[in-house]
Computed example of a mutant assay.
Amino acid sequence: MKILITGVHGFVGTNLVKALSKEHTIYGLDIISPTKEGVRFTFSWDYLDKENGIPEVDAIIHLAGKAHDTKNQTVSDVYFKVNTGLTQMIYDYFLKSKAKKFIFFSTAKAAADKVEGILTEDVVPSPVGPYGESKIAAEKYIQEHLANDKQVYILRPCMIHGPGNKGNLNLLYGVVKKGIPWPLGAFENRRTFTSIENLCFVINGLLTKDVPTGIYNMGDDEALSTNELIEEICKSLGKNAHIWKLPKGLMTGVAKIGGALHLPLDSERLRKLTENYISSNAKIKKALGVEKMPVDAREGLQRTLESFK
Protein backbone atom coordinates (compact mmCIF):
# COMPACT_ATOMS: atom_id res chain seq x y z
CA MET A 1 0.00 0.00 0.00
CA LYS A 2 0.92 3.65 -0.34
CA ILE A 3 0.35 5.42 2.99
CA LEU A 4 0.48 9.10 3.97
CA ILE A 5 1.29 9.74 7.64
CA THR A 6 0.85 13.22 9.11
CA GLY A 7 3.14 14.08 12.02
CA VAL A 8 5.46 11.39 10.67
CA HIS A 9 8.51 12.65 12.57
CA GLY A 10 6.89 12.43 16.00
CA PHE A 11 7.17 9.55 18.49
CA VAL A 12 4.24 7.49 17.17
CA GLY A 13 5.01 8.36 13.54
CA THR A 14 8.62 7.23 13.86
CA ASN A 15 7.54 3.88 15.29
CA LEU A 16 4.84 3.40 12.64
CA VAL A 17 7.38 4.01 9.89
CA LYS A 18 9.62 1.28 11.35
CA ALA A 19 6.67 -1.12 11.55
CA LEU A 20 5.11 -0.40 8.14
CA SER A 21 7.88 0.68 5.76
CA LYS A 22 9.15 -2.85 5.05
CA GLU A 23 5.93 -3.76 3.24
CA HIS A 24 4.43 -0.39 2.31
CA THR A 25 5.47 2.88 0.66
CA ILE A 26 5.36 5.68 3.23
CA TYR A 27 4.97 9.40 2.55
CA GLY A 28 5.06 11.98 5.32
CA LEU A 29 3.24 15.24 5.99
CA ASP A 30 4.79 17.40 8.70
CA ILE A 31 5.96 20.88 9.70
CA ILE A 32 9.57 19.63 9.43
CA SER A 33 10.95 17.55 6.58
CA PRO A 34 14.27 15.89 7.40
CA THR A 35 15.09 12.71 5.52
CA LYS A 36 14.01 9.61 7.43
CA GLU A 37 14.76 6.00 6.63
CA GLY A 38 11.57 4.35 5.44
CA VAL A 39 9.88 7.58 4.31
CA ARG A 40 9.90 8.21 0.56
CA PHE A 41 9.37 11.97 1.00
CA THR A 42 7.96 14.34 3.62
CA PHE A 43 5.68 17.09 2.30
CA SER A 44 4.77 20.33 4.06
CA TRP A 45 1.10 21.14 4.76
CA ASP A 46 0.81 23.66 1.91
CA TYR A 47 1.23 20.76 -0.55
CA LEU A 48 -2.39 19.80 0.21
CA ASP A 49 -3.52 22.76 -1.89
CA LYS A 50 -1.09 22.19 -4.77
CA GLU A 51 -2.20 20.47 -7.93
CA ASN A 52 -0.17 17.27 -8.36
CA GLY A 53 1.39 18.06 -4.96
CA ILE A 54 1.10 14.79 -3.03
CA PRO A 55 0.96 11.41 -4.83
CA GLU A 56 -2.27 9.43 -4.58
CA VAL A 57 -2.22 7.03 -1.63
CA ASP A 58 -4.35 4.13 -0.41
CA ALA A 59 -4.58 5.25 3.22
CA ILE A 60 -4.00 8.30 5.42
CA ILE A 61 -2.95 8.08 9.08
CA HIS A 62 -3.48 11.39 10.86
CA LEU A 63 -1.17 11.74 13.84
CA ALA A 64 -0.32 15.44 13.72
CA GLY A 65 -1.71 17.36 16.67
CA LYS A 66 -1.02 19.42 19.75
CA ALA A 67 -0.21 17.05 22.62
CA HIS A 68 -1.69 17.51 26.08
CA ASP A 69 0.29 20.18 27.93
CA THR A 70 0.39 18.90 31.51
CA LYS A 71 1.72 22.28 32.69
CA ASN A 72 -1.37 24.02 31.25
CA GLN A 73 0.70 26.70 29.56
CA THR A 74 -0.86 26.30 26.11
CA VAL A 75 -3.70 28.67 25.21
CA SER A 76 -6.90 26.90 24.16
CA ASP A 77 -6.91 28.48 20.67
CA VAL A 78 -3.77 26.53 19.77
CA TYR A 79 -5.45 23.20 20.55
CA PHE A 80 -8.44 23.99 18.33
CA LYS A 81 -6.31 25.44 15.54
CA VAL A 82 -4.14 22.32 15.42
CA ASN A 83 -6.22 19.40 16.71
CA THR A 84 -9.50 20.45 15.10
CA GLY A 85 -8.37 22.66 12.21
CA LEU A 86 -5.65 20.39 10.81
CA THR A 87 -7.93 17.37 11.13
CA GLN A 88 -10.65 19.09 9.11
CA MET A 89 -8.05 20.06 6.49
CA ILE A 90 -6.54 16.59 6.04
CA TYR A 91 -9.94 14.86 6.22
CA ASP A 92 -11.35 17.12 3.47
CA TYR A 93 -8.28 16.21 1.40
CA PHE A 94 -8.96 12.52 2.08
CA LEU A 95 -12.60 12.78 0.93
CA LYS A 96 -11.49 14.28 -2.41
CA SER A 97 -8.67 11.77 -2.86
CA LYS A 98 -8.70 8.16 -4.05
CA ALA A 99 -7.57 6.93 -0.62
CA LYS A 100 -9.96 4.36 0.89
CA LYS A 101 -8.88 4.33 4.56
CA PHE A 102 -8.46 7.13 7.09
CA ILE A 103 -7.15 6.59 10.62
CA PHE A 104 -7.49 9.49 13.06
CA PHE A 105 -5.60 9.47 16.34
CA SER A 106 -7.92 11.03 18.89
CA THR A 107 -7.46 10.34 22.62
CA ALA A 108 -9.22 8.61 25.50
CA LYS A 109 -9.47 12.09 27.04
CA ALA A 110 -11.89 13.05 24.27
CA ALA A 111 -14.32 10.52 25.73
CA ALA A 112 -13.86 11.18 29.45
CA ASP A 113 -11.53 13.02 31.80
CA LYS A 114 -12.49 10.67 34.64
CA VAL A 115 -13.66 7.05 34.41
CA GLU A 116 -16.06 5.27 36.72
CA GLY A 117 -15.75 1.55 36.05
CA ILE A 118 -14.49 0.72 32.55
CA LEU A 119 -14.47 3.10 29.59
CA THR A 120 -16.19 1.79 26.45
CA GLU A 121 -16.87 3.35 23.06
CA ASP A 122 -20.57 3.93 23.73
CA VAL A 123 -19.91 6.47 26.51
CA VAL A 124 -21.39 9.93 25.98
CA PRO A 125 -18.26 12.08 25.52
CA SER A 126 -17.55 14.52 28.35
CA PRO A 127 -14.05 15.94 27.80
CA VAL A 128 -12.66 18.51 30.23
CA GLY A 129 -10.28 21.19 28.96
CA PRO A 130 -9.23 22.32 25.47
CA TYR A 131 -7.14 19.24 24.66
CA GLY A 132 -10.01 16.75 24.92
CA GLU A 133 -12.55 19.28 23.63
CA SER A 134 -10.53 20.01 20.48
CA LYS A 135 -10.16 16.29 19.78
CA ILE A 136 -13.88 15.59 20.21
CA ALA A 137 -14.66 18.50 17.88
CA ALA A 138 -12.43 16.84 15.28
CA GLU A 139 -14.20 13.51 15.85
CA LYS A 140 -17.60 15.12 15.32
CA TYR A 141 -16.48 16.75 12.07
CA ILE A 142 -15.30 13.38 10.74
CA GLN A 143 -18.51 11.59 11.80
CA GLU A 144 -20.64 14.28 10.14
CA HIS A 145 -18.82 13.77 6.81
CA LEU A 146 -18.52 10.00 6.39
CA ALA A 147 -18.43 8.55 2.86
CA ASN A 148 -20.04 5.20 1.97
CA ASP A 149 -17.13 4.08 -0.22
CA LYS A 150 -14.42 4.77 2.38
CA GLN A 151 -13.48 3.28 5.75
CA VAL A 152 -12.79 5.70 8.60
CA TYR A 153 -11.38 4.83 12.01
CA ILE A 154 -11.22 7.05 15.09
CA LEU A 155 -8.78 5.67 17.66
CA ARG A 156 -8.92 6.68 21.32
CA PRO A 157 -5.64 5.44 22.84
CA CYS A 158 -4.73 5.67 26.51
CA MET A 159 -1.18 6.79 27.35
CA ILE A 160 1.11 5.53 24.59
CA HIS A 161 4.63 4.51 25.52
CA GLY A 162 7.64 2.95 23.83
CA PRO A 163 11.29 3.59 22.93
CA GLY A 164 11.82 7.27 22.21
CA ASN A 165 8.84 8.28 24.35
CA LYS A 166 9.02 11.56 26.26
CA GLY A 167 6.41 12.36 28.88
CA ASN A 168 5.11 11.57 32.34
CA LEU A 169 6.60 8.08 32.32
CA ASN A 170 10.08 9.56 31.86
CA LEU A 171 9.49 11.93 34.76
CA LEU A 172 8.37 9.09 37.02
CA TYR A 173 11.36 7.01 35.92
CA GLY A 174 13.69 9.89 36.86
CA VAL A 175 12.14 10.20 40.34
CA VAL A 176 12.44 6.47 41.05
CA LYS A 177 15.99 6.32 39.64
CA LYS A 178 17.10 8.92 42.22
CA GLY A 179 15.92 6.59 44.97
CA ILE A 180 13.13 8.93 46.09
CA PRO A 181 10.45 6.85 47.93
CA TRP A 182 6.97 6.78 46.40
CA PRO A 183 4.67 8.29 49.07
CA LEU A 184 1.31 7.48 47.46
CA GLY A 185 1.28 3.71 48.02
CA ALA A 186 -2.02 3.90 49.95
CA PHE A 187 -3.85 4.84 46.74
CA GLU A 188 -4.61 1.57 44.88
CA ASN A 189 -5.55 2.85 41.44
CA ARG A 190 -5.44 1.09 38.07
CA ARG A 191 -4.72 2.58 34.66
CA THR A 192 -4.68 1.38 31.07
CA PHE A 193 -1.52 2.00 29.07
CA THR A 194 -0.82 1.47 25.36
CA SER A 195 2.46 -0.07 24.27
CA ILE A 196 3.68 1.11 20.88
CA GLU A 197 4.02 -2.51 19.69
CA ASN A 198 0.32 -3.17 20.29
CA LEU A 199 -0.56 0.12 18.63
CA CYS A 200 1.43 -0.74 15.51
CA PHE A 201 -0.26 -4.18 15.45
CA VAL A 202 -3.70 -2.54 15.47
CA ILE A 203 -2.78 -0.01 12.76
CA ASN A 204 -1.50 -2.80 10.52
CA GLY A 205 -4.77 -4.67 11.11
CA LEU A 206 -6.89 -1.64 10.21
CA LEU A 207 -4.89 -1.16 7.01
CA THR A 208 -4.96 -4.77 5.85
CA LYS A 209 -8.29 -6.14 7.12
CA ASP A 210 -11.91 -5.26 6.34
CA VAL A 211 -12.74 -3.54 9.64
CA PRO A 212 -16.01 -1.57 9.95
CA THR A 213 -15.87 2.23 10.15
CA GLY A 214 -16.14 3.42 13.74
CA ILE A 215 -14.65 4.60 17.02
CA TYR A 216 -12.24 2.24 18.76
CA ASN A 217 -10.56 2.42 22.15
CA MET A 218 -6.89 1.48 22.16
CA GLY A 219 -4.96 0.03 25.07
CA ASP A 220 -3.13 -2.99 26.44
CA ASP A 221 -5.07 -5.96 27.78
CA GLU A 222 -4.09 -5.44 31.44
CA ALA A 223 -4.46 -2.30 33.55
CA LEU A 224 -1.64 -1.55 36.02
CA SER A 225 -1.64 0.31 39.31
CA THR A 226 0.86 3.12 39.90
CA ASN A 227 2.42 0.94 42.62
CA GLU A 228 2.92 -1.85 40.05
CA LEU A 229 4.38 0.71 37.66
CA ILE A 230 6.89 1.78 40.34
CA GLU A 231 7.78 -1.88 40.91
CA GLU A 232 8.36 -2.41 37.18
CA ILE A 233 10.64 0.66 37.04
CA CYS A 234 12.63 -0.66 40.04
CA LYS A 235 12.89 -4.08 38.38
CA SER A 236 14.32 -2.41 35.28
CA LEU A 237 16.82 -0.48 37.41
CA GLY A 238 17.74 -3.49 39.53
CA LYS A 239 16.56 -1.71 42.69
CA ASN A 240 14.19 -2.52 45.51
CA ALA A 241 10.91 -0.58 45.39
CA HIS A 242 10.45 1.99 48.16
CA ILE A 243 6.68 2.49 48.35
CA TRP A 244 5.37 4.35 51.39
CA LYS A 245 1.69 3.91 52.28
CA LEU A 246 1.21 7.26 53.99
CA PRO A 247 -2.36 8.12 55.09
CA LYS A 248 -4.50 9.38 52.20
CA GLY A 249 -5.77 12.30 54.30
CA LEU A 250 -2.20 13.41 55.01
CA MET A 251 -1.22 13.34 51.33
CA THR A 252 -4.41 15.18 50.34
CA GLY A 253 -3.51 17.91 52.84
CA VAL A 254 0.08 18.07 51.58
CA ALA A 255 -1.23 18.44 48.02
CA LYS A 256 -3.47 21.37 49.03
CA ILE A 257 -0.49 23.11 50.64
CA GLY A 258 1.57 22.28 47.56
CA GLY A 259 -0.98 24.01 45.36
CA ALA A 260 -0.88 27.16 47.48
CA LEU A 261 2.94 27.20 47.45
CA HIS A 262 3.22 26.16 43.77
CA LEU A 263 5.08 22.94 44.65
CA PRO A 264 5.32 19.89 42.31
CA LEU A 265 2.55 18.01 44.16
CA ASP A 266 -0.77 19.85 44.11
CA SER A 267 -4.37 18.60 44.26
CA GLU A 268 -4.73 18.23 40.48
CA ARG A 269 -1.48 16.29 40.12
CA LEU A 270 -2.42 14.09 43.09
CA ARG A 271 -5.71 13.26 41.35
CA LYS A 272 -3.93 12.41 38.10
CA LEU A 273 -1.42 10.19 39.88
CA THR A 274 -3.99 8.27 41.93
CA GLU A 275 -7.17 8.08 39.83
CA ASN A 276 -8.50 4.99 38.08
CA TYR A 277 -8.62 5.11 34.28
CA ILE A 278 -9.42 1.70 32.78
CA SER A 279 -10.31 1.46 29.09
CA SER A 280 -11.74 -1.60 27.34
CA ASN A 281 -10.06 -2.77 24.12
CA ALA A 282 -12.65 -5.52 23.51
CA LYS A 283 -14.20 -3.81 20.45
CA ILE A 284 -10.96 -3.43 18.48
CA LYS A 285 -9.87 -7.01 19.31
CA LYS A 286 -13.22 -8.37 18.11
CA ALA A 287 -12.98 -6.29 14.91
CA LEU A 288 -9.48 -7.64 14.21
CA GLY A 289 -10.46 -11.21 15.13
CA VAL A 290 -7.94 -11.62 17.96
CA GLU A 291 -8.39 -12.73 21.56
CA LYS A 292 -5.50 -10.77 23.01
CA MET A 293 -2.91 -8.16 22.06
CA PRO A 294 0.48 -9.53 20.99
CA VAL A 295 2.42 -7.77 23.76
CA ASP A 296 1.68 -8.15 27.47
CA ALA A 297 1.33 -4.83 29.34
CA ARG A 298 4.33 -5.49 31.60
CA GLU A 299 6.45 -6.78 28.72
CA GLY A 300 5.77 -3.64 26.71
CA LEU A 301 6.53 -1.48 29.72
CA GLN A 302 9.87 -3.19 30.31
CA ARG A 303 10.87 -2.52 26.66
CA THR A 304 10.09 1.16 27.15
CA LEU A 305 11.97 1.33 30.46
CA GLU A 306 15.02 -0.39 28.95
CA SER A 307 15.13 2.35 26.30
CA PHE A 308 15.32 5.02 29.03
CA LYS A 309 18.72 3.68 30.03
Rank of each mutant, 00 (worst) to 15 (best):
R269S: 11
L246E: 01
G219T: 06
I90Y: 02
L224H: 03
L305G: 03
L301P: 07
L146N: 13
F41I: 03
F104M: 11
E56N: 11
L199V: 04
M251C: 05
K286N: 13
P157D: 02
L305W: 01
K283M: 14
V123F: 13
K50F: 02
T226I: 14
L155E: 03
L119G: 08
T84S: 10
T274S: 07
G205F: 13
G238I: 07
L224S: 05
A282P: 10
H24I: 07
K66G: 09
D49E: 13
L237D: 06
S134A: 09
V176G: 00
W45N: 07
R303F: 06
A99R: 00
I26R: 04
G129H: 04
K166G: 03
M293D: 03
W244A: 10
E228A: 12
D30T: 02
D210Y: 01
L261Y: 10
T84G: 01
L184S: 07
D266A: 12
V8G: 07
Q302G: 01
E23Q: 12
T107D: 00
A111R: 10
I54E: 01
L224W: 05
D266F: 13
Y93F: 12
H262I: 11
N168C: 09
I278K: 11
T84M: 12
K71A: 15
E121T: 08
K292Y: 08
A99H: 02
G253Y: 02
M89Y: 05
D122R: 08
C200N: 14
G85W: 05
R156N: 15
K66H: 15
S195Q: 02
K2W: 04
E188W: 03
A64V: 08
L237F: 08
R191G: 06
Y91I: 06
D221M: 05
P130L: 12
